[in-house]
Design a protein around this nucleic acid. Structure first.
Lengths: 188, 188
DNA sequence: ACCGTCATGTAATCGGTTACATGATTCT
DNA sequence: AGAATCATGTAACCGATTACATGACGGT
């Protein structure tokens, strides 16, 4: 039954990971997500249980449940799943992007508080958070380096590095030069 | 009636904008969002009609409906709304951030396609999109410059500039140097 | 008057999130 | 054996997105 189920980004994450890692359980997916994609786009674990079920019902995945022990479900990608994934990858029409950052939201409204302290605290907090994230990205990158990974999964991580570096510098400027605008950056 | 309604980022956007712009209709909010916050965190217009209603019912906003003409509702922030907003702003505990970017997702899985063309097209498309966004940010910034705006709403825009610049460079490298990793960037 | 766009909503659906719950392993 | 954590789910709720629909307003 190939119903007219519409595929969300979540769907493609699941399809992609199953294609990439081979037959996987939901827990496998959860692990894979938390090591990679989950760093910039999070998915609650429950979805990694329900989404494969949906996809299986629609024929994009094949589900096999083990009988004893944990009775866990293992998913494999079908031909239909492969072609859906391929179509998505080949479709270059930009699918939009958003930076859902509460810190930026607060900064946007920060002057409403009437207290400069608010911005200071926010900047300090954000600097901390982004510094930590940057550090872990560096670790992961070094780790991939050691394994000789040079594919586009690592390229994606590189974007994360750029992003965190920019964020760290930005919040540093916000914190260190109160009342002044962060610089606009170089012309490109 | 101050029920235990939990406040989402959407709620704070509404509260913040009403606090910032004064009494507003949903359409005013829609306009304000599309000019500013909506650039990095989008909210469908329907939510800007339902969310104020929720907030009004919970006592954070005051709703006044005009009788003739469009019978539109105008919202004003209440004391309770102000204090909720202030509490949120003062709470520095980082509220998490995500970069929900379909392009990055595709890049992560791009090698599954087995076709280098896929990455090329993706990079070209993303470069285009980010370049355009960068251009409009520059326009807005110049516009604010002329008006002498130097508050933290403009600082927020500056982050957008940094982000788009980074994205443009990133996708340029991905497109121009196939098979090579984008550079890791400077130590900070 | 008519038409197109602006403006203002409502309804229904559905994905995402939170909360709950339990069984399997592993460790002490 | 018992505790702690790992692993695997389910269910309910609710916010978010999509689709639909209609009424004002401005211009011709």
């Amino acid at each position: 039954m190939m119903s007219t189920l519409n595929l969300t980004p979540t769907s493609y994450v699941v399809l992609g990971l199953v294609a990439q890692c081979g037959p996987s359980t939901s827990y496998d997916l959860k692990q894979a997500v938390s090591r990679s994609i989950g760093n910039f786009w999070s998915f609650p674990h429950a979805q990694l249980y329900t989404e494969p079920a949906r996809l299986a019902e629609a024929g994009f995945l094949d589900e096999k449940r083990e009988l004893g022990g944990r009775r866990r479900r293992t998913y494999t990608i079908t031909e239909q799943g492969h072609s859906a994934l391929a179509r998505w990858l080949a479709d270059a029409t930009a699918g939009g992007y958003e930076v859902r950052d509460s810190g930026l939201l607060k900064l946007f409204f920060a002057d409403l508080a009437g207290d400069p302290e608010v911005v200071q605290n926010l900047a300090a907090e954000q600097l901390q958070a982004h510094s930590e994230r940057l550090a872990t990205y560096r670790e992961i990158d070094a780790h991939l380096e050691k394994q000789g990974v040079t594919d586009h999964t690592r390229a994606t991580l590189r974007f994360g590095l750029w992003y965190e570096q920019a964020a760290v510098q930005f919040w540093q400027e916000v914190g260190q030069r109160p009342g002044q605008l962060p610089r606009a950056g170089a012309d490109t």
